[in-house]
Design a protein around this nucleic acid. Structure first.
Lengths: 239, 239
DNA sequence: GTGGTTATATATTGCTGATATATTGAAGAT
DNA sequence: ATCTTCAATATATCAGCAATATATAACCAC
């Protein structure tokens, strides 16, 4: 007990949100819920980069005490989503072109490798899960709501991370996923026409999942790299 | 201002310890210093896996209030160094063979890639820094104190991370470095004869740095991978 | 007497509100 | 214009209370 794998399992049983509605029902600490709410608001740019976050204000708005707010802000600081300047203020961190480059560079490399691992390590029961995902993806035609696109994208990625069977890598990639998601939102806010193209991106994932199912590691890795980088180049055009 | 790069720079100006004595002088918050002290104690197994960490006890021992202690423990929780179980206790996390495999697998892959980047992105003034490191490494002969070996190892790795010029990657790799360092300590505690072999490992780093200096990305990547994995296989023998 | 259930005491973290202290920006003196 | 002072504002810290999980002991049925 009390090893990393246990911790990891428990932590992912609930708690991981970004559009997974369960955080209403999630039985966890106030601090945890406050963290998730704030993080999602930052990722979706409802709290845009540069926003001043006052503890007292957040306490009122979220109807919790000082401790949960502080713990949430600190955790966001470690994630890189806010910058705490002692006795000056806490701000939502800014994003620039260098962040875009660095985040996608790292994520593309690490995630494509994880996809290779997934192809090598897929078990039979997971193959069924993959087929189901593929079916869902194929049924999505026509214009979709942004949240649905991203929720589906997230499910596919988290599936891959899980199948790669390395809990540390899972956490690393989930973090990079959140970072790049915020960058995407910032870009979309400035350039709303970006949205429709995202649908095309979903179709890459069918090919990727099929490669994983076939156990074709080279092909899976190649597609994953292209998939992440296609986000990057779409975003780069408008930033 | 307030972007990730600024944050990253500031955070690394002081604060990052593990045997860098500056955390006595470091002008930062109590919570930060408490975090670093506890983390180092956990990494070096002065606080072995499974240890119960009582807030009240730590307050007395470190002569700080509850807030800094709590913030430190939470941060350690996000790092994976402790497991907080509500109203039951906070424990130093355990380590098993799966953690060893997963951490080194991820670190080897990511770090060898970062070393490739470093070889590609090295600037002239950094080449001088590298030469200096190489000289120091070459002068180390005969038996060394464990702390000196690891401090030197750490310096080399952090130099590589820096030259790769991706702040997100830097943080990711620093985290993996801390994780694998603790695993190494746990292994050494069980099998003290491991220590001397570590000296040999340092000599790999000369070759690695020279490859980076030459800009030979393929060679640098290959050596880095072998270097990290040699730690892994040494540790695996005794765990 | 033994096994199992319930009540209670204790230990531990979760949370709150108040206080301490540092930073900032602007008013006022030079 | 420049420096100094001071009030406003923000986080950092503290001490105490609340809530709950766990262990212990008392109790009861058999």
């Amino acid at each position: 007990m009390f090893g990393y794998a246990d911790m990891h399992r428990e932590r992912n049983a609930l708690k991981m949100s970004v559009f997974e509605v369960d955080y209403e029902a999630a039985e966890s600490t106030l601090a945890e819920r406050t963290y998730i709410r704030l993080r999602d608001d930052i990722i979706t740019t409802q709290l845009p980069p540069g926003t001043l976050l006052r503890e007292a204000e957040l306490m009122k708005r979220m109807d919790v005490g000082r401790t949960p707010v502080r713990e949430a802000l600190q955790r966001l600081q470690y994630d890189g989503f806010v910058v705490v300047s002692a006795r000056r203020g806490t701000f939502v961190s800014k994003i620039d072109i260098n962040d875009l480059t660095a985040v996608y560079e790292a994520r593309a490399r690490i995630e494509s490798w994880a996809t290779r691992l997934a192809a090598e390590r897929l078990r039979e029961f997971e193959r069924q899960e993959a087929r189901q995902l593929i079916d869902e993806l194929k049924q999505t035609t026509g214009p979709m709501a942004l949240e649905d696109i991203l929720a589906l994208d997230r499910r596919v990625h988290r599936f891959i991370y899980k199948v790669a069977k390395n809990p540390f890598l899972f956490d690393t990639l989930d973090h990079y996923h959140n970072l790049s998601l915020r960058i995407l939102y910032v870009a979309m806010k400035r350039f709303p026409t970006l949205v429709p193209r995202l649908e095309d991106v979903l179709h890459d994932q069918v090919l990727m999942l099929e490669a994983v199912c076939k156990g074709d590691a080279d092909e899976a890795e190649r597609i994953a790299m292209a998939h992440v980088m296609s986000f990057e180049s779409e975003v780069r055009k408008v930033i």
